[in-house]
């Protein structure tokens, strides 16, 4: 297997839509088996960074390495096989609308495993129960609420017990209790699967409770201004913007 260690190394990354540069000079490492939170104001490029990490967008400069494996330079079939170890939760859920929740969660299993259909059904039922949706396996995505869709999408993301998990604002649109459950689930996935988890979030409560490491993207300077443990950043970050973000703008007076 190509994956010896499970860290993700972002090296001199520049992201652009056409001639519009979203972020430049991004350098940071996501430690294997840890939860890293990407934070920053709305529209600063968090989702864009995530889309680069999962290979949906090509960097205009720099590279992203998974372990010792250069993802940006690999050819397509290697990348495709690499992607089987990714689980992604999109900002809007992105469940396949023509399939029931059960089929949604089952598709990755059917595609990549040799399991029998009854085994797959059991796994699907288990994953749905993890996110609190056990009774809903026969529902279509259009017939459940936005928060439920998000949880179902999470069940799909963890279907294959991925080594790398990417969450785009997992708790947006969830009530406080579900949001808390989701945070617990994320920590459990880290501890049980040893998954490397990248979370985009601007919910302070969840940042402080789940993040082993946080990366702050700044819209003004178009780069990462600081990184570290959220509590350390709040106390001693040299950048007022970071402290302001982590204290809801209160340091501003």
């Amino acid at each position: 297997m190509i994956l010896g260690n499970r860290q993700i190394k972002v090296d001199g990354l520049e992201m652009a839509y056409g001639s519009f540069v979203v972020m430049r000079n991004l350098d940071f490492t996501v430690e294997g088996g840890k939860v890293t939170v990407i934070m920053g104001g709305s529209g600063c490029g968090k989702s864009t960074l995530l889309r680069h990490m999962i290979g949906l967008l090509e960097p205009s400069k720099g590279s992203i390495k998974f372990g010792d494996f250069d993802f940006t330079a690999a050819d397509e079939s290697t990348r495709d096989s690499m992607k089987q170890s990714f689980g992604v939760l999109y900002q809007g859920g992105a469940l396949w609308s023509s399939m029931t929740l059960e089929e949604n969660v089952a598709l990755p299993l059917q595609t990549y495993t040799q399991l029998s259909s009854s085994e797959i059904r059991e796994i699907v039922e288990f994953k749905l129960s993890l996110v609190g949706l056990s009774g809903f396996s026969q529902f279509f995505p259009g017939a459940i609420s936005g928060g439920m869709r998000k949880r179902a999408a999470l069940a799909r993301a963890i279907a294959l017990d991925p080594k790398y998990l990417f969450f785009d604002e997992p708790s947006a649109g969830l009530d406080p209790v579900s949001s808390q459950r989701l945070d617990d689930l994320i920590l459990q996935l880290r501890d049980t699967l040893g998954a490397t988890i990248v979370v985009v979030s601007h919910e302070l409560a969840s940042i402080f409770s789940i993040a082993d490491h946080a990366v702050y993207l700044d819209a003004e300077t178009r780069t990462m201004t600081d990184q570290g443990r959220p509590s350390d950043l709040l106390e001693k970050s040299p950048h007022p913007g970071v402290r302001e973000f982590l204290s809801r703008g209160k340091t501003n007076g």
Binding site: L56, M82, V88, Q91, A94, L95, W96, L107, T111
Partner: peptide
């Protein structure tokens, strides 16, 4: 087109399903 807008196609791609 709708699947593209709701990121369903991206979800397929990142799952390695063409």
């Amino acid at each position: 087109g709708n699947m593209r807008v709701s990121e369903e196609i991206d979800a397929l791609e990142t799952m390695g399903i063409r």
